[in-house]
Design a protein around this nucleic acid. Structure first.
Length: 613
RNA sequence: GGUCCCGUAGCUCAUUUGGAUAGAGCAACUGCCUUCUAAGCAGUAGGUGACUGGUUCGAAUCCAGUCGGGAUCACCA
C-alpha cells in the first residue's frame, strides 16, 4: 500500500492519497496518550462509512476496549475527540455503538479531487523496466470445432485479467497455447476425408471453424452408428467402442501424423488453416489478442527430456512395462503417469515441458498464470507439485486461474447433445438486439451507417462482456439463452449510456480537459458530489484488489456503483443551468472525472464506451 | 467411495483480510420526460444467508457435523 502511490504521484498528491495512513498514525497516538497503550499502526484499519451514517471513514473500536477499559461508545468518543483536535483534515465525527464515523473536511477532499483531475493515470501503476514480467495464458482452443460460450468466458476473463495486471504495474505477455494435434483433431480430418466431398469454406460459404466442427460432429455420428451395429452383433459396449472400424482408422491416422506422412500433414495443415481464419474473426470481434502463440504440434514432444531428468533425480520411477510415474501419495495425492509405456507423451509430459520452455523463452519471467476451467484443478495441482519436486524455484509462482463453468438452465453444455451456445451466433444476436433497441430509442440521428454499425457492436459487446465479467471468475455462472442479456439496470449498456450522457453534457459546455480550473477549497459540496469524490478515492484500491484477486468482477461492481451514483447526482443537480460559475465548473469537472474513470474501468474489462448512444 | 468446490430475495449476482439494520439488478406494483440523453431517477414489496452445533465482544464469512448440488480421481486432453 505504502510504496506505489509515491511512484506515480508527486509528493503533495501522495500525501492526500495516504489519508488512511495519516489517520492510523493519529489513532495510534490517541490510544497511546489517552489510554497509555501502544498499538501497531499496521493493525489499525478503517472501513468505508455506511451510507446511512455521516462520515467518510469508520474505525471499529472493539479492538481497543481492552486498552480503554470503557464502553465502546465512550472509547469511540475519546478517540474521536482526540483525532478531531489533532488532525487538521478531520472536521467532525459521530459515534454509533462501537463505530467511530470520521468526517473529513473539504480541505482534504478538494485537493484530492484536484489531484484526480490532473492525473490521467490515477489509480494505475506504471509499467517500466522494473516491472514484474508475468505470462498469462488464456483461450487455448482446440482446432476441431468453433468457439462456444465457455471459451468466451475464458477469453474475456483472460483478457481482462491481463489488463488488470498491467494496471497494477506488471509487464504482461499474453500467451495462447493452441491444441492443434491429437486424436480429437484427427476426428474432423477423417470425417471430412470420408464424407466431405471436397467441401471448403469457399465452396460452402461457411466460416472455417464451423465447417471443421461440422465434420467433428459427423465423426461422432458415424462412430455411434458403428458402435451400435457392433453391439447388435453381441459385443459389449466397451469392446464395440474399441473395435469400431472408424476408431481403428483414426488411430492409424494419428500414427501417420506423428510419422510425418505427407498426405495426412497436408490435410491437417489445410483444415487447421480453415480453423485459424475462423478463430481470427471471432477473436477480432471479441477484441482479444495475444503476444505469443504456442502450438501443441510444436510443444508436444517437449517434456520427454524432463522425464529423463526426473528419473535421474529419482523424482519419477519406471514401471516394468516402461511407463514412467510419480508417487504423490506423500502429498495426499495419487500416483500419476508422466510418460506412456510406448514412450509417447501425455498431457502432463507436455505441460511440464512447455512450462520449462516458457521460462527459457523469457528469462525474466517471474510468474506464469494459466486461465483454464476448474475441471482441471487436479491437473494443475499435480503439475505445479511436480515442477516443485523437480527443483524449479519458479514453480511456486505458477498459478491456475481456475474459472467456473458456464451452465445452461438444463446443466452443462454438451457438444454431442447440441446444447452448446455458439460464440459467433451469440455475438450476432447481441448485435441484432442492440441494433433493434438503438433504433427503437432513436437517439442517433446524424450517424453514418458505419458509425451506427460500430455502435451496435460496441453496445452488444458491452452487454455480453459485462454480463460475463461481473461474476467472480471462480464461480460457475448460469446463462439462459431464452432470456436475452439485459440492457437495463446493472449492465454494460447502462454504464456505456451514462458515459455517453456525460460526454453530451461536456460537449454542450464545450468543456476543455486541458484547461481545467483548480477547484477552490471553500466550495460547498452537496451530498452526491461528496459521495462521488469519496468513490474516486476507492479506485486505486479497487484496481489493486481486482489484480490481487484476479477478479474483473471487482471492477465491474465498482464501476456500477460509480455510474449509479453519477446518475443520482445528475438527476438531483443542474450542471449546465447552474448559475454559480464556480459550482458549475466543479460539476463539469466532476462529470469529466467520472466519465474518464468509467472509460478506464471499462477498459480494464475490455469494454469500450461510446460518446453518443 | 477418496479428494476438491459450491448452497445468500421468485431469478441472476454482490457483500476484501470476521464488524453496524446482509445490498444491487431482473421480474411485480407506484410515481417522474414543455427541464443538461427516461438504455435514466425516486418509491413499495420481497431474507431463518441450506440445516444443527461450536469459537468470538461480534459469524453469510472461521471450525465440526448433517442435507442438497457440481467437479475430479484414465497409458484422454
Amino acid at each position: 500500500m505504502n510504496g506505489y502511490f509515491s511512484q506515480i504521484c508527486p509528493s503533495k498528491f501522495y500525501l492526500y492519497m495516504n489519508i488512511e495512513q495519516i489517520l492510523s498514525e493519529v489513532v495510534k497516538t490517541a490510544v497511546s496518550s489517552v489510554y497509555q497503550t501502544e498499538v501497531e499502526v499496521s493493525a489499525i484499519s478503517f472501513q468505508k462509512t455506511k451510507k446511512e451514517f455521516e462520515g467518510d471513514f469508520t474505525l471499529v473500536v472493539f479492538p481497543y476496549l481492552k486498552a480503554s477499559k470503557k464502553s465502546p461508545e465512550q472509547t469511540a468518543t475519546d478517540i474521536g475527540n482526540y483525532i478531531r483536535e489533532n488532525c487538521e483534515y478531520v472536521s467532525g465525527f459521530n459515534v454509533v455503538k462501537g463505530f467511530l464515523n470520521i468526517v473529513l473536511d473539504n480541505s482534504y477532499w478538494i485537493p484530492f479531487f484536484n489531484g484526480v483531475l490532473t492525473n490521467s493515470s490515477f489509480g494505475f501503476k506504471p509499467v517500466n523496466e522494473n516491472s514484474k514480467h508475468i505470462m498469462l495464458e488464456y483461450s487455448s482452443p482446440n482446432t476441431n470445432k468453433p468457439l462456444h460460450l465457455g471459451h468466451v468466458r475464458n477469453n474475456l476473463v483472460g483478457y481482462s485479467v491481463a489488463e488488470l495486471l498491467k494496471a497494477n504495474g506488471n509487464k504482461v505477455t499474453k500467451a495462447n497455447l493452441v491444441n492443434d494435434r491429437g486424436i480429437h483433431i484427427c476426428k474432423s480430418m477423417l470425417a471430412w476425408k470420408k464424407f466431405g466431398n471436397g467441401e471448403t469454406p469457399e465452396s460452402t460459404g461457411m466460416k472455417g471453424d464451423h465447417l471443421v466442427g461440422k465434420y467433428y460432429v459427423a465423426f461422432d455420428k458415424e462412430y455411434k452408428k458403428q458402435t451400435a451395429e457392433l453391439i447388435n452383433t453381441g459385443l459389449t459396449k466397451e469392446d464395440a467402442e474399441k473395435q469400431a472400424p472408424i476408431m481403428q482408422e483414426i488411430q492409424e491416422m494419428l500414427r501417420n501424423w506423428e510419422a510425418g506422412d505427407k498426405e495426412t500433414i497436408d490435410l491437417w495443415k489445410m483444415m487447421n488453416a480453415w480453423v485459424y481464419s475462423g478463430f481470427e474473426v471471432t477473436y477480432k470481434t471479441l477484441g482479444v489478442d495475444f503476444d505469443k502463440m504456442y502450438y501443441e504440434s510444436n510443444t508436444y514432444l517437449l517434456g520427454k527430456e524432463t522425464v529423463e531428468y526426473g528419473l535421474k533425480k529419482d523424482v519419477f520411477y519406471k514401471k516394468e512395462d516402461g511407463s514412467v510415474w510419480i508417487d504423490l501419495t506423500g502429498d495426499g495425492l495419487d500416483h500419476k503417469l508422466v510418460l506412456r509405456a510406448d514412450g509417447t507423451s501425455v498431457y502432463m509430459t507436455q505441460d511440464l515441458g512447455t512450462a520449462i520452455e516458457r521460462f527459457k523463452d523469457f528469462p525474466d519471467l517471474k510468474q506464469l498464470i494459466y486461465t483454464v476451467g476448474n475441471e482441471q484443478d487436479y491437473h494443475f495441482k499435480v503439475l505445479f507439485l511436480i515442477l516443485q519436486k523437480l527443483g524449479y524455484d519458479w514453480a511456486k509462482e505458477c498459478y491456475h486461474l481456475s474459472y467456473g463453468m458456464v451452465e445452461l438452465p438444463e446443466g452443462k453444455m454438451k457438444s454431442r447433445e447440441g446444447t452448446v451456445v455458439d460464440a459467433d451466433e451469440l455475438l450476432q444476436e447481441m448485435f441484432d438486439t442492440s441494433e433493434q433497441t438503438t433504433k427503437e430509442l432513436g437517439k442517433i440521428d446524424g450517424f453514418t451507417d458505419e458509425e451506427a454499425q460500430q455502435l451496435y457492436h460496441t453496445i452488444g459487446l458491452g452487454a455480453l462482456k459485462y454480463f460475463m465479467l461481473k461474476v467472480d471468475p471462480k464461480k460457475k455462472m448460469l446463462f439462459d439463452p431464452k432470456e436475452s442479456i439485459d440492457f437495463n439496470g446493472n449492465t454494460g449498456p447502462f454504464i456505456q449510456y451514462t458515459h455517453a450522457r456525460i460526454q453530451s453534457v461536456l460537449r454542450k459546455a464545450s468543456f476543455n480537459s486541458a484547461a481545467i480550473e483548480v477547484i477552490k477549497t471553500d466550495i460547498a459540496l452537496q451530498e452526491k458530489e461528496k459521495e462521488l469524490i469519496r468513490l474516486m478515492y476507492d479506485f486505486p484500491k479497487t484496481v489493486e484488489e481486482a489484480g490481487h484477486l484476479y477478479n474483473p468482477g471487482t471492477i465491474a461492481n465498482y464501476t456500477y456503483e460509480l455510474t449509479k451514483t453519477y446518475n443520482q447526482f445528475y438527476h438531483e443537480h443542474p450542471i449546465l443551468k447552474e448559475e454559480n460559475s464556480a459550482i458549475k465548473n466543479m460539476r463539469l469537472a466532476l462529470s469529466y472525472a467520472c466519465g474518464s474513470l468509467i472509460k478506464r474501468s471499462m477498459g480494464l474489462l475490455g469494454i469500450s464506451v461510446p460518446d453518443r448512444m
